[in-house]
């Protein structure tokens, strides 16, 4: 059964000339038990897609059902309840509450459930922390833990409400290779338990863990590839996204394929990328300037 079903989903931000198309008629079906890696350059709409699927955001157009239920026009409070009961979030910046210890952080989603005593909540949180190998550090404050450990606690928090779907927005983005490994191994284990996991990554290596890799560009899915676990996805391995290069000149100019727009999209809508600070190297800017001259 399809857990996630998006049909022609679009998301627009802003008004008038400042309108940004973050998602451009995206259609996507994700089956239960899939471990999906989503790749793409900054500002390509990965995060918007994640937020949409995680019911933090609503699509401007299109239909979206989650677990067979139509959720594209949900009221915020209903969405909150579905998040509480069926979705677990893992963030790049961990997002633990600094004033709560590991155990209390993990128990946080449970506090928004009805009729669960504090003792019961903390017990559940404790057993989940044990699952992620953090039982020794239950009473540590987030500031006293290493990056990998903090993310492990965050994973425990995402797991504590026993969600069907786990959404991880660049879970390894702020971690070193060791921390990344720890986190991915954990996610992989959770996947083996039968959970559906979506994660965003910039690291092609991490597609080894995924069963499916989706590439996004300018709000569209440009490549959708099933891969075997343990294998780096073919496109990711080639180190480039599957964007057709147009001319030899482009190749000669060394324009970053990552940054290039597809030719047939160029004319459609005057696009303004959301100003994102990360990972936009000065060389790509120069290159695009060159391109603009031509």
């Amino acid at each position: 059964m399809a857990v996630i079903e998006l049909k022609d989903v679009s998301k627009l931000y802003g008004f008038g000339d400042a309108t940004t198309l973050a998602l451009d008629e995206v259609s996507l079906t994700i089956e239960e038990g899939e471990f999906v890696a989503i790749m793409g350059p900054s500002g390509c709409g990965k995060s918007t897609l994640m937020n949409m699927i995680g019911l933090l955001d609503r699509p401007t157009h299109g239909n979206f059902s989650l677990g067979g239920r139509k959720v594209s026009r949900l009221k915020p409070n209903r969405a909150a309840k579905i998040r509480r009961d069926t979705i677990g979030f893992i963030f790049q910046s961990f997002n633990l509450l600094p004033r709560l210890n590991a155990l209390e952080n993990v128990a946080l989603p449970l506090t928004y459930r009805t009729n669960m005593s504090q003792t019961k909540r903390l017990k559940m949180a404790s057993s989940i922390l044990e699952r992620v190998g953090m039982q020794e550090r239950e009473y540590f404050m987030p500031g006293q833990l290493s990056g990998g450990q903090v993310q492990s606690v965050a994973i425990a928090r995402a797991l504590v409400n026993n969600p069907k779907l786990i959404i991880a927005d660049e879970p390894t983005g702020n971690l070193d290779s060791q921390g990344s490994r720890l986190v991915m191994e954990l996610l992989s284990e959770i996947h083996k338990m039968g959970n559906t996991i979506l994660f965003v990554t910039h690291n092609p290596e991490l597609t080894r863990y995924a069963t499916r890799v989706i590439y996004m560009h300018d709000g569209q899915i440009i490549q959708d590839e099933k891969t075997a676990i343990g294998q780096v996805a073919a496109t990711a391995r080639s180190g480039m996204y599957n964007v057709a290069t147009m001319t030899e000149e482009d190749d000669l100019a060394g324009v970053s394929v990552m940054m290039k727009t597809k030719p047939h999209k160029e004319t459609k809508i005057p696009r303004k990328r959301k100003p994102t600070t990360k990972k936009r190297s000065p060389t790509t800017k120069q290159n695009s300037a060159k391109r603009a001259k031509k």
């Binding site: 409070n77 909150a80 633990l96 946080l108 928004y112 928090r157 409400n161």
Partner: peptide
């Protein structure tokens, strides 16, 4: 603000 965001993400309703 961030804390509010986190709480909402893990399922806090407006009322809570």
């Amino acid at each position: 603000m961030r804390e509010i965001g986190i709480r909402k993400a893990v399922g806090a309703t407006n009322r809570q």
